[in-house]
């Protein structure tokens, strides 16, 4: 069963003056399986938030269909199994931390006894126990993000949708949110989150989709996207003879001689074997041989540039 299935989803707006169509999302096809942690990547304005808003019924699509848990996304019953953290979450700032969680829990039809226990657990878990009686207008950005996560999972949803959950946070805040996402992952939740912080996506996601100008540019498992492309092999060796150094320099794209040690970059995989034989022949010492894979960031930038 797909937790999210999107077929040809499009959303366009009309320019207020010219009436020209502005495509926010164009013919998106996407599937997210159960238990997956799915990263939805793209630069600002790519259509990530539009997609999330369409799935949650905040926007109406211009065309296309979507299913959540194999039911049409318009069926409000499916929302019972979804938790959502919007980008820069805005809550009723006159409410206290525990009041907002109680209110949201009631919207999910939770009974008061279970709800109070769950609130205690979550406030403890997101480190806001001390701030439970503080009104939200006194919360910092990081605290708001954490209370946002707590409200998103108050009812133990099967699918958690997080819109830019790591944006604007300091490194500690990001780590806390990441850890929270890992906990959700361990509990078996499906996580669909949008971000443009690629290092986090690389760390957290099983699979990603890259969205560009409203269109799906690339999708795949992290291992598929990252592993096939070894860009260079970084070799560090010691005690090479002058002749050996010269031979290594000839096959390298980058060569640094630091006396006893040399560092070289080799692009051609077939030349790696030659270098290894050279080191052996010279009775030199191989210190490291690291394949440099293409990072998600580089794939992302390539897609942005339209390569």
């Amino acid at each position: 069963m797909d937790v999210i299935r999107i077929e040809g989803l499009s959303k366009y707006y009309r320019h207020q003056l010219t009436g020209r169509k502005i495509h926010a999302l164009e013919g998106l096809n996407l599937n997210v399986g159960q238990g997956e942690t799915f990263g939805f990547l793209g630069p600002n304005g790519a259509g990530k938030t539009t997609t999330i808003k369409l799935l949650l019924g905040l926007l109406f699509p211009s065309s296309g269909k979507a299913w959540l848990f194999d039911k049409p996304y318009t069926d409000i019953r499916v929302k019972q199994d979804i938790g959502f953290l919007p980008e820069n979450p805005y809550f009723y700032d006159y409410l206290k931390g525990e009041e907002i969680l109680y209110f949201i829990g009631k919207l999910y039809g939770m009974n008061s006894v279970d709800l109070k226990k769950r609130i205690d657990y979550l406030l403890e878990n997101v480190g806001l126990s001390q701030a439970r009686h503080l009104p939200l207008h006194k919360y910092s950005k990081g605290m708001l993000q954490r209370i946002g996560l707590a409200q998103a999972v108050i009812h133990k949803p099967k699918l958690v949708i997080l819109d830019e959950p790591l944006t604007g946070l300091d490194p500690i805040g990001r780590k806390e949110i990441r850890d929270f996402i890992f906990t959700l992952k361990d509990e078996g939740s499906t996580i669909f989150f949008s971000t443009h912080i690629l290092s986090d996506a690389e760390m957290i996601c099983d699979r990603v989709a890259i969205l560009m100008k409203g269109k799906l540019a690339k999708t795949g498992k992290m291992t598929e996207l990252l592993s096939p492309k070894v860009k260079t092999y970084e070799i560090v060796a010691a005690n090479l003879t002058e002749e050996g150094k010269r031979a290594l320099k000839q096959v390298s794209t980058r060569f640094v001689d630091e006396g006893t040690q040399v560092a070289a970059s080799i692009e051609d995989e077939s030349k790696v074997q030659t270098v290894m034989e050279l080191i052996q022949k010279d009775k030199a010492r191989l210190i490291s041989l690291i394949p440099q894979r293409e990072s998600l960031e580089e794939i992302f930038i390539q897609e942005v540039k339209g390569k």
Binding site: K53, L56, G57, L58, I76, R77, V78, K79, Q80, I82, F84, P86, N88, P89, Y90, F91, Y92, I104, L107, Y108, G109, Q151
Partner: peptide, 14 residues
């Protein structure tokens, strides 16, 4: 205006 609607409408309510 305060975007609190995003949190509410995404919940299971008509």
């Amino acid at each position: 205006d305060k975007r609190t609607i995003y949190v509410i409408v995404s919940k299971p309510l008509h």
